[in-house]
Design a protein around this nucleic acid. Sequence first.
DNA 1: GTAACCAGCCGCAAT
DNA 2: ATTGCGGTTGGTTAC
Lengths: 219, 219
Amino acid sequence: MRLVIATCEVVYEGRLSARLPRAKRLLLVKADGSLSVHADDRAYKPLNWMSPPCTTEAYPDRWVVRNAKGETLTVGIDEIHLDVAHDLGFEPGLEKDGAEVGLQGLLADHPEAIEPGLVLVSREHETGIGPVDLLCHAPDGTFVAVEIKRRGEVDGVEQLTRYLELLAGDNRLRPLRGVLAAQKVTPQARRLAAGRGIGWVEVDYDRLRGLEPAIPTLF
Amino acid sequence: MRLVIATCEVVYEGRLSARLPRAKRLLLVKADGSLSVHADDRAYKPLNWMSPPCTTEAYPDRWVVRNAKGETLTVGIDEIHLDVAHDLGFEPGLEKDGAEVGLQGLLADHPEAIEPGLVLVSREHETGIGPVDLLCHAPDGTFVAVEIKRRGEVDGVEQLTRYLELLAGDNRLRPLRGVLAAQKVTPQARRLAAGRGIGWVEVDYDRLRGLEPAIPTLF
DNA sequence: GTAACCAGCCGCAAT
DNA sequence: ATTGCGGTTGGTTAC
């Protein structure tokens, strides 16, 4: 990994054209060949970058980074204020929580969080154009197709609508209704769902995770 | 901006739980308060991060970064190999070109790129639930509602379907059909469109931009 | 502030 | 390799 702080101008020519006027910035060169140009804001997002695989040609006054598609990132370097390189060695990698990370796994284990008394019939139930996330059975005898999204927006309602149309052909699943389950459901999605007789529910993700075995902490 | 290369362990407790075992990594602290933990790969994406606004408590052996939602990023520091800080000063900001213009402006100027002989009737034609991107008139006498997406996916077809349903009530626009215009149209979207009598077209963005005035380059 | 939408999205898994 | 899909998506703009 090489860290350079330089006064530079940058031009990206690729899927769009972008230009950065002269200023002092961080140039981050990783072992994978990638280059990112960072300002002192925008959190982790660089102003410009080139993802690997790409190659860099270094000239005295500028670097030209190129990828296979012919996109180029050109860094015109005026002055270098810092230039250090470090070998970071092996990266053991990120361990995300061992249990189910997503909403789907949690809701599959706790369908009663969607509606009291709901029982799971199957996960990823195939419809012909794609799987519906959960298929459940309610105490009132109806089947419930559940579409799970982190953010419940109109496209989630559209997707569920299509699934319901296709599942309507299966008379083993009658009567059938749909529910959109999400951490948050937007007003637009609520309106569209209501107009189609589709239910929605906002799920408390943190509470749901609390029902799982506690997560060992390091500190 | 502060750049630290350290042997460290990292724990994130927030929307999910994640742990990074001990290894040498880059800790990037920006003036906006954000912290990102970078390995020597994954292009510009950090392994872990905390976005602003957030606050950092620094102890001799660890940093604890916290945001308003109570999410924490804890960096246990074993050894520091580099620790430099630089003031980058003012960032003039990114000047994008091409993305701002968007496909819509280009296609409004060149509707013949969607279908030969197509003529623009109006842009952002209101339907009641939102505007359809372009409304055109074809040589065969039909009206064409055009939904423009950079990437043509199923939700674009769904959106256009809803617009067509609403526009069907306007008998000044008969006969009416729909076309999805995108740089790339996914197979799923093609199938769904076909099943609804909706057309689709892939637009060559670069060629279209070539019809516009050339973009001045820096180098 | 919230909601809707776009991104050079990135990155992963299944096909 | 491509497609589909989620992300601690992030970020911008209209409302």
